[in-house]
Design a protein around this nucleic acid. Structure first.
Length: 440
RNA sequence: GCCGGGGUAGCCAAGUGGACUACGGCGCCAGCCUUGAGAGCUGGUCCCCAUACGGGGGCGGGAGUUCGAAUCUCCCCCCCGGCGCCA
């Protein structure tokens, strides 16, 4: 949430921010209009309440002297009626203002590129060696300037085919019992999934992050604090008949953890690594990645979350993305890091890096990691503050994938293919206990 | 799920219908004092409106009774204890 005081004092700045996100600016004036009405009504109410308080004291004194207070009481009833009427208006104005305010996206950081379209997000760096089809080389070079590659003559087999053919997953039966975008993992893939989770967790714990296994459902107030409005429509599952929502990432329960709390300055930074299943409706994704396990309704993810002092959050964002890259490098998956265009950013993030792994079957880079600095946007919604000297300040919150199982497995299946099976990345072998998934 | 006890500011804690301006303590911040630290003293330390003077609201959340509610009533949430159920 944006500070209403910023809107009052500098609406043009907020409008400019919306323009940079390629969004309509009308909402700013709308909010200010309701804010003005709210303040005006509040003032009227407060002067009436002042009057009430004075009269009430007077009545108290008169009652003690056993004098008649009948007429005064009558007057009070009138005042109270007036207040009640005005209070209804005031509530309406305030609700209108706050509902709109909650929809206003975060202020962008200065180094968020101003552009539209995911394909225009600048590439910050690349790592590893990509397997590129001869006819795709020119396009590859455009998408990953300077990145090393080997030319291959035959496209790698899609993970979708490998999964079903070699009994590593049963997607059609999952569709029978649950619908599209579900899956049964089987055999060594189950062990690979668990190995990936533990591998990523171990890496993060070594770096001083505190491991957390969070609640998988949240109340509306908590969820509303961490996500934007559209997420409820497009992403979040609701439990019928209860005030509970399934988490779409461990970021949600981890960030909401300190809702309505005041931290001490010396508690910061707080660094968590969460591990949890993630549940997503994928409502806005009809027709995209309809097969396989790339885009699914539930998967496991290891997630990093940091609560920091405002001045430290840019530094920690670099730390988070480096942690995630470190995991990709350990798995030897070729990737690029992009700085997401302002036009593609969600409402909550002020800046976002994605890691995209090169997928040799698709001959494309695909997102496997997302790293965001949310500044004080979530903290303000959730009232997470810390005491700095004598004043209270909002913390900054940051989050980043450490490792998401399904997409990472797709990356491994497509990048580690050999004639007769899938090689297991060396770093994982101590966890899996096997180094090869054989096709025979 | 049932019965009982509880929830007051960052923490502890008093207050059970009108002098509550929510007592007091701890912690924290600023100033005085000190060579420095500590102790001591003074002031400050929830939110909102207002440039300010000032005003309004806050006692787990919401609704109500009353001229007036931390205090009385109802609903909900959470914590502690006991009983029941359960992987």
């Amino acid at each position: 949430m944006i500070d209403i005081k910023l809107l009052r004092s500098n609406p043009e700045m907020v409008k400019e921010n919306l323009r940079r996100r390629f969004e309509d600016t009308g909402i700013v004036d709308e909010i200010l209009e309701y804010d003005m009405l709210w303040r005006r009504t509040l003032k009227d109410i407060e002067s009436l309440r002042h009057l009430r308080n004075q009269k009430s004291l007077e009545i108290g004194k008169l009652v003690k002297k056993e004098k008649d207070v009948g007429p005064l009481k009558e007057e009070m009833r009138n005042i109270n009626t007036k207040i009640k009427t005005l209070e209804v208006d005031m509530e309406n104005y305030k609700n209108m203002r706050d509902t709109l305010l909650m929809r206003l996206p975060n202020m962008l950081m200065e180094d968020t590129p101003i552009c539209e379209g995911e394909e225009n997000s600048p590439v910050l760096r690349t790592w590893g060696v990509a397997k590129v089809l001869g006819e795709m080389v020119e396009s590859f070079k455009k998408h990953a300037p300077g990145m090393k590659y080997n030319v291959i003559t035959q496209r790698a087999t899609s993970h979708v085919d490998i999964l079903e053919k070699y009994d590593l997953a049963d997607i059609s039966r999952a569709a029978k019992v649950a619908g599209a975008r579900f899956y049964y993992l089987k055999n060594q893939l189950v062990l690979l999934e668990l190995s990936l989770l533990r591998f990523a967790l171990d890496k993060m714990v070594k770096k001083g992050y505190v491991p957390v296994s969070p609640p998988l459902m949240l109340r509306h107030t908590a969820m509303e604090g961490v996500t934007d409005f559209s997420a409820f429509e497009e992403m979040i599952y609701k439990i019928e008949g209860e005030d509970l929502y399934m988490i779409a990432t461990a970021e949600h329960p981890l960030v909401a953890m300190y809702m309505n709390e005041i931290l001490d300055e010396r508690d910061l930074p707080i660094k968590y690594v969460g591990v949890s299943p993630c549940f997503r409706k994928e409502a806005g994704a009809h027709g995209k990645d309809t097969k396989g396990i790339f885009r699914v309704h539930n998967f496991y993810k290891v997630e990093q979350v940091i609560f920091s002092k405002p001045e430290d959050s840019p530094k920690f964002m670099e730390e988070l993305i480096d942690n995630a890259e470190d995991i990709m490098r350990a798995l030897k998956l070729p990737y690029r890091v992009i700085n997401i265009c302002s036009g593609e950013l969600g409402a909550v993030a002020a800046k976002k890096y994605d890691i995209e792994v090169w997928m040799p079957a698709q001959q494309k880079f695909r997102e496997v990691v997302s790293c965001s600095n949310c500044l004080e946007y979530q903290a303000r919604r959730l009232k997470i503050r810390y005491r700095k000297g004598n004043e209270l300040q909002y913390v900054h919150t940051l989050n980043s994938t450490a490792l998401a199982t399904t997409r990472t497995m797709v990356g491994i299946i497509e990048n580690y293919q050999e004639e007769d099976g899938i090689r297991i990345p060396e770093a994982l072998v101590p966890y899996t206990g096997f180094d090869f998934i054989s096709f025979s």
